[in-house]
Nucleic acid binder design. Structure first.
Length: 436
RNA sequence: GUGGGCGUAGCUCAGCUGGUAGAGCUCCGGAUUGUGAUUCCGGCGGUCGUGGGUUCGAGCCCCAUCGUCCACCCCA
């Protein structure tokens, strides 16, 4: 019978890698807490129409990357390919946007049917941040400052570049679209195949094309900046001043247009050259029209999402290494099976009395020699030993495993707990450093 | 969807021009009846990704297929 294995592009995360991810996530959460952002959770599955309308049905994501299926009642459902649409739906459905502002974040898996490669998976995890009800550019700057604090916290600030652009108001964007179309239509037969397909559906995306011939044609294309109305220009100019005030360096890249239809005004990507082809670690922007488009009252919104797999790869390559995974403090073993009950109980009492202590109890059977081998392999600093004698006299033997030939000592449990109450003695010397 | 590299033990990998499947690590046992990490000895572990073909004979050559990695594309 064929072996069952994980679905293509949906990799398992093994203990070492997961420890790294948990560390990264903890650091990110610490920053979010400092900013006072509130956490929400959306379902992984939404009505297909939410993404068709929210993300835009001319986008690559909706056109060819969604996991869409019918449930047993025949309703069309989709595994979320991104978080913003669902977050807006959540806010609308529960009245979170009525006469109030929101600063929210969420984290979880997203699903896109693409060919897997480095930093790109079919199930991948994003941490997303969305703010609602803030029309002015201050929140744009706050979010970019939040990102910058993330990078500093993880030690990857040198590896990331902020690329910034503005699409202007929906009116500006529409005006530019018309201007671009007027310029490109006569040149249509010189465009590459993808760009021709995009010409009517999503012409701004052509700016993003990496085909050299197409880029050459674009050299004389109308300038988006020239189509910006006064208010759009003021918004962008103010944002740039705020970024200067926050000492956040950036480059304006007019080619950043983003692949999701809902963006207006500010759009940005944090990119790196350290991860191969998938260089965007974090991307986002303002989407002032989205809430209305999904049936709500006009509400300004702005947000970003970052790919935790990519970010973790970057931290591994360039960032602050997490402290070595804390090894066990104590490994409890009975010398044979007859005292397993006492060993289990000892472990439990230690954990209750000293919650900071990490305690593992031997559960694998075997002879004394095998038990000590396990104790050693566990990385624990001390083995707590229960044999015939100890159980008889109500004591426990404490054997240091990482201090050369330090002597084994015998304690009553209350005395040992008292002895360790202020923490274990600091490890002696670096030569005994042990992983895991 | 397109292109290229790679699939041999749990892991990392060798395997000559086609001629009886190997090493290191890990794990288990013994040397040592209640004491680990060193050392020595022994052991477990494989439909060589899968299916077909060529051949007296295939891990090796051919075809197909699946997986994986990288790139295009796209994005997180």
């Amino acid at each position: 019978m064929a072996k069952i294995q994980s679905i293509r592009g949906m990799p398992d995360v093994l203990p070492d890698a997961s420890a790294m991810r948990l560390w990264v996530e903890d650091r990110l959460k610490a920053v979010l807490a400092r900013y006072g952002y509130a956490h929400v959770r959306m379902p992984l599955v939404e009505a297909t129409a939410l993404f068709a309308r929210g993300v835009g049905d001319g986008t690559d994501i909706v056109e060819k990357e969604m996991y869409t299926f019918e449930d047993r009642s025949g309703e069309s459902l989709t595994l979320r390919p991104e978080g913003t649409a669902g977050c807006v739906r959540l806010c609308e459905e529960h009245g979170l946007l009525y006469n109030q502002t929101q600063r929210l974040w969420y984290q979880g898996p997203m699903f896109r049917y693409e060919r897997p490669q480095k930093g790109r998976y079919r199930q991948f995890e994003q941490l997303g941040v969305e703010c609602f009800g803030f029309p002015g550019p201050a929140i744009d700057a706050e979010l970019l400052g939040l990102c910058a604090d993330f990078w500093r916290e993880l030690g990857v600030q040198e590896a990331l570049t902020l690329e910034l652009n503005t699409l202007g108001s929906p009116e500006s964007r529409a005006a530019y679209r018309d201007a671009l179309l007027a310029y490109l239509r006569p040149l249509a037969d010189q465009l590459d195949e993808d760009s021709q397909r995009r010409l009517e559906r999503n012409p701004l995306r052509i700016l993003d094309s990496k085909v050299p011939e197409t880029q050459a044609l674009l050299a004389d294309a109308p300038d988006l900046a020239a189509c910006l109305d006064e208010a759009s220009r003021a918004h962008f100019d103010a944002l740039r001043r705020y970024l200067d005030a926050l000492a956040i360096p950036y480059v304006v890249n007019p080619r950043i247009v983003r692949g999701l239809d809902y963006y207006t005004h500010t759009v940005f990507e944090w990119t790196t050259t350290a991860l191969g082809a998938q260089g965007t670690v974090c991307g986002g922007g303002r989407y002032d029209g989205l809430v209305e488009r999904l049936g709500g009252r006009p509400t300004p919104g702005i947000g970003f999402a970052m790919g935790l797999e990519r970010l973790t790869l970057l931290v591994e390559a360039h960032g602050a290494a997490p402290a070595e995974a804390a090894p066990l403090d104590v490994y409890v073993l009975a010398l044979d099976e007859t005292h397993s009950a006492e060993a289990l109980a000892l472990g439990q009492r230690l954990r209750q009395a000293l919650p900071a202590l990490t305690v593992q109890v031997h559960c694998s059977g075997g002879k004394a020699k095998a038990r000590f081998k396990k104790a050693d392999a566990s990385g624990a600093r001390y083995a707590l030993i229960l044999g015939e004698t100890e159980v008889a006299e109500g004591t426990v033997a404490v054997k240091p495993l990482r201090e050369g030939d330090a002597a084994q000592t015998t304690w009553t449990l209350p005395a040992l707990i008292d002895h360790w109450r202020e923490g274990l003695p600091s490890p002696s010397g670096t030569d005994v450093a042990t992983r895991r």
